[in-house]
Simulated scan of single mutants.
Amino acid sequence: MTRPQRVPWFRFNKGVSGEQRAFYERHGFIVYRSVFDADDVEVIRADAEQLESDTLAGRIPAEHRDRILQPSYDERGRASLHRLPYFTLHRPKTRELVERRGLDVLGPGLLGKPTWRFEDAIDGAVWQMKRGKRTSYNALDWHLDFPHDHPVAPLVNVGIYLNPATTQNGCLVVVPGSHRFPPRRLEPVGLPVEVDAGDVICHTNNILHHSGPVLDDTSRATLYLYYAAGEKPAAGTEFSHKAGDDFATLFIDSEAGAAR
């Protein structure tokens, strides 16, 4: 079995060095190892369990519930969710943890300009769970998070990994440098990015990426933060991925391939 190519990684010290920013600008992504410890990961996992329970029980406002990925159901008909938007808005422990660990420097540090973090608009921070076979969300097709001319762009996607991500359970696959070139009608050559729980992957809004299927019965959760340097929308503005759409225009693509 061929092992994935080794991906360079960096240590995060609550700042972005010149070397790190240069790597990000050239390749469109960067990996930081061991940003969160086991206790931190458990805080986010517990918050996810509570938010999922609150959502299923109807205790979360309808406008803050996911409208992109369908729930999965077990043999007893019990629902489980694959996507929890507005995560840090509803889970202050996780929001405080993110701030305490210094992640808010990543946006301005990698983009070289002031940024704002998604919180109360455009789905906010998003927790996402990929589960194994026979579920409604198992893989994600090639896509961009936002095109380069979207009003919020440029933007840094900061993924906090709550489980190990491997090729076996559908880790992130990027096309390094693809953010610097227009899309082509060619089969992309992707680079799998395997990481451990507590690691963070940052990538730009318009890098081409996907994640393969979960090939076993495991699951893998990630919390995504978004730091944008573009126009900041009003609170409550819904997610739109169409370039040039007005922020007040509601547009949600129901296909899993368009999910962030």
Rank of each mutant, 00 (worst) to 15 (best):
Y86G: 04
Y86C: 04
Y86S: 00
F87Q: 05
F87M: 00
T88F: 13
L89W: 10
L89D: 13
R91E: 08
P92N: 05
P92M: 05
K93S: 12
K93Q: 10
K93Y: 11
K93V: 14
T94R: 05
R95P: 15
R95L: 11
L97S: 01
L97A: 02
L97Y: 01
L97V: 04
V98P: 03
R100W: 06
G102T: 09
G102H: 10
G102C: 04
V105F: 03
L106F: 07
G107S: 11
L110V: 01
P114W: 05
T115Q: 09
T115I: 05
R117W: 05
F118E: 13
E119V: 14
A121P: 14
I122L: 14
I122V: 15
I122T: 14
D123H: 08
D123Q: 02
D123C: 05
G124M: 04
G124F: 06
G124W: 09
V126N: 10
W127F: 15
W127G: 03
G132Q: 00
G132E: 10
G132P: 07
K133S: 08
T135S: 08
T135C: 00
Y137D: 06
N138Y: 13
L140W: 15
W142F: 07
H143A: 06
L144Q: 09
D145E: 11
P147K: 03
P147C: 09
H148N: 12
H148L: 10
D149G: 04
D149F: 10
D149Y: 05
D149N: 11
H150L: 02
H150W: 08
P151G: 04
A153G: 07
P154N: 00
L155C: 07
L155V: 12
V156E: 08
N157H: 14
G159R: 02
G159K: 01
I160L: 01
I160P: 04
Y161V: 04
Y161K: 09
L162P: 00
L162E: 08
N163R: 14
N163Y: 14
P164E: 14
P164F: 15
P164Y: 06
A165P: 13
T166R: 13
T166C: 08
T166N: 12
T167K: 08
T167S: 12
C171E: 04
L172Y: 01
L172E: 09
G177R: 01
S178F: 01
R180W: 11
F181Q: 14
P182Y: 04
P183Y: 10
P183G: 09
R184Y: 14
R184V: 15
